[in-house]
Simulated assay, not measured.
Amino acid sequence: MNHHTARAGVTAVLLVTALGCGADTGQGSPGAASTPDPAGNVSVPPEPPAEPVNDASTTTDTPEPLATRSSSEQTQDEADSSTDRLAAENFAISFGQMIVDVREARDQEAVVDDLISTQLPAEVREFLLVDYEDQRALGSQRRLDLDFPAFVRSSIEGPADEPTRVNVELAAVFAAWDVKAVCRVRVDVIREGDQWRVVEFGGPSVTGGPLEKSEEVEASLQGAGWRPLPN
Rank of each mutant, 00 (worst) to 15 (best):
S34I: 13
V124A: 11
I156D: 00
G203Y: 07
W177Q: 12
N54Q: 11
P163N: 01
S72E: 06
A18M: 13
R165W: 03
K213G: 01
A172L: 00
V16T: 15
T58M: 12
A105L: 14
V182D: 02
R85P: 10
P38Q: 03
S82K: 12
F201E: 06
V10P: 03
P210A: 10
T11L: 13
V182G: 00
E78C: 14
P63T: 04
C21I: 14
D55L: 07
E157P: 09
A105S: 13
R186Q: 05
D24T: 03
G28N: 04
P159M: 05
L229P: 02
D147L: 06
A172M: 00
P204V: 00
H3Y: 12
S214E: 08
S29C: 11
L128H: 01
T17E: 14
A122H: 05
N167H: 11
L229K: 00
N54A: 14
D145G: 01
E89M: 14
T58E: 08
R197E: 08
F148H: 04
G225L: 05
D134Q: 13
R186M: 03
P228N: 08
D37F: 03
V13A: 14
E123R: 06
D113Y: 01
S82W: 11
A171H: 00
D147T: 09
V206K: 10
A110P: 04
V100E: 01
Q135I: 12
G209A: 13
G208I: 07
E126V: 11
L211K: 03
R125K: 06
S220L: 02
L170G: 01
R191H: 03
S43G: 15
A171E: 03
P38E: 02
P230V: 10
A39Q: 12
T5E: 11
G139P: 04
A39T: 14
Q108I: 15
R184V: 09
T60R: 09
R227D: 09
G193L: 06
A87C: 09
I93R: 00
A88W: 04
E212A: 10
L229A: 05
A110N: 11
D147K: 04
Y132A: 08
L15H: 11
D178V: 07
S154Y: 00
V187C: 04
S43Y: 15
A181K: 05
V187A: 07
T118D: 15
E218N: 09
P36M: 04
D114Q: 14
R125C: 05
Y132F: 09
A39C: 13
L128K: 02
T83P: 08
V100D: 02
A56K: 03
E212H: 12
P30H: 11
A88K: 02
V124Y: 06
L138Y: 08
A50D: 09
P149Y: 00
V187S: 01
E157H: 07
F91M: 01
Q76A: 15
W196T: 00
R153M: 05
T60P: 14
D55S: 06
A12K: 03
R136T: 15
S94E: 06
R103G: 15
S205E: 10
A105C: 10
P65K: 04
P228W: 00
A39G: 15
L229G: 03
G31M: 15
G96S: 04
A219M: 06
D131H: 09
R143S: 12
V173C: 02
V112M: 06
V130M: 08
S71F: 07
L146V: 13
